[in-house]
Design a protein around this nucleic acid. Structure first.
Lengths: 230, 230
DNA sequence: CACTAAAGTTAATGGTCGTAACGAAAACTA
DNA sequence: TAGTTTTCGTTACGACCATTAACTTTAGTG
């Protein structure tokens, strides 16, 4: 009864950590297909079957990478909103979006793993969703600050948005407009970033950074009920 | 000297066609990873190495599928704009967007293959880009009709948009606003559709169709210099 | 120290892509 | 028509991969 996490457990956790580190290195270098039980084992000087003591299958290892990547992306974007001194809401929205895009450009293979490679194959685990929602909650808070109250009658879409907000732990009383803009901001940003990573904008000779900047400004203007700048 | 395409060439093209058909069946059923030289061979009653007479590698076969899928997506969306009698520009934009989304939902694995699986790996071939640009040209034509002339000074982004428009064969004199909205419309639609395919909106309890409809209405309103409806 | 359980090893199965060597059939040619 | 060449298919093979089974080594525990 030395420690609650026994020494054995500690070295085991250390091994798991190293497996994931080496896996991320291989992932970043050559994409998810390069993360094989054999390649990871070789990278750590272990025989491949030894990894099965830690992950029941290659798929489980990849899922662990997904959860970690989601958590990293979520905490990175959430941290971008918490500056000292605090920024006003529009600046925070811009920073959150920048952080999302920058993370995706810094780790394009990880971003592809999260949002592309596994599309329609395996659905996200609750852990993964919770990780990325850290950033979403910050975004929603900023949007709520500048979203003008809407006297509109609530549509079915609004109702489902409110339910979603409650489900992810947003504070009560969120405006449906803020919730909708949160979803649309995320969706637009994802579209831009995934096309940018694929090289589409570069092939078109367009500056993706400028496209992203104007797109985010549009979201902010819409929250304020102002006309987007053309 | 029976025909210009000799009999041998004809049966060869037929075989290539069947290889791609079987490949698409496997792709639609289980994703791109299920399209293997072995599985396609088995599906056609051929030994796997025989396929190398027609495609130099599995990668080349996949690339051929990509080109065909791009062409199908492009012609499907372009066809949606050419109705009889012709529709007005806003309705055409809505129909193009619907056609894009519907194609993606009908062939989610193909859509993932085009825009996700190969991200950052291999860049698009000119053939593929040309195929999907059929729909883009229709979209740009419709946007041009309703885009009010902008007396703005041209920005660097505008200049690169104009260059891109010329490169893909858009008629001269396109408004930068129409070009920019074409790109943003595409990007937003892609973000929505890829998230919808991945099941993200379903997991959030949101109606993706409604999100897409409002998003496209926003594009149309922006083209008219009108405030998006909230 | 002796025992047990965890962690590592090698060996083996069955799957993949791709190459090599070979046989059969079709088309061309003298 | 008969012979030659090209094409198309085959089987056999080597190099990877994931995964399981059986065995050995190591480390913690009474």
């Amino acid at each position: 009864m030395t420690e609650n996490p026994s020494r054995r457990e500690r070295v085991r956790q250390q091994t798991i950590k190293e497996i994931k580190e080496r896996s991320f290195e291989l992932l970043d270098a050559g994409g998810v297909t390069d993360v094989s039980i054999a390649s990871v084992g070789k990278a750590m000087g272990m025989s491949p079957p030894a990894l099965y003591r830690y992950f029941p299958s290659r798929e489980a290892l990849l899922e662990a990478l997904v959860v970690d990547a989601y958590a990293d992306l979520g905490s990175t974007t959430a941290a971008a909103a918490r500056t000292e001194p605090p920024l006003d809401a529009p600046a925070r929205i811009a920073r959150i979006a920048q952080a999302w895009r920058r993370w995706a450009l810094t780790h394009p293979r990880r971003y592809a793993m999260l949002f592309s490679d596994r599309s329609a194959t395996a659905q996200d685990t609750p852990e993964g969703v919770a990780g990325v929602n850290q950033g979403m909650l910050q975004l929603l808070a900023a949007l709520q600050e500048i979203a003008e109250p809407t006297p509109h009658t609530t549509t079915p879409l609004d109702e489902s948005l409110v339910r979603w907000g409650q489900a992810i732990g947003a504070p009560p009383g969120m405006s449906p407009l803020a919730l909708r803009l949160g979803v649309l901001c995320w969706s637009r940003l994802h579209g831009l970033v995934s096309l940018e990573i694929s090289g589409a904008f570069a092939a078109m000779g367009l500056d993706a950074a400028q496209l992203a900047a104007t797109e985010m400004q549009t979201v902010i203007d819409t929250a304020r009920h102002a006309c987007p700048t053309h």
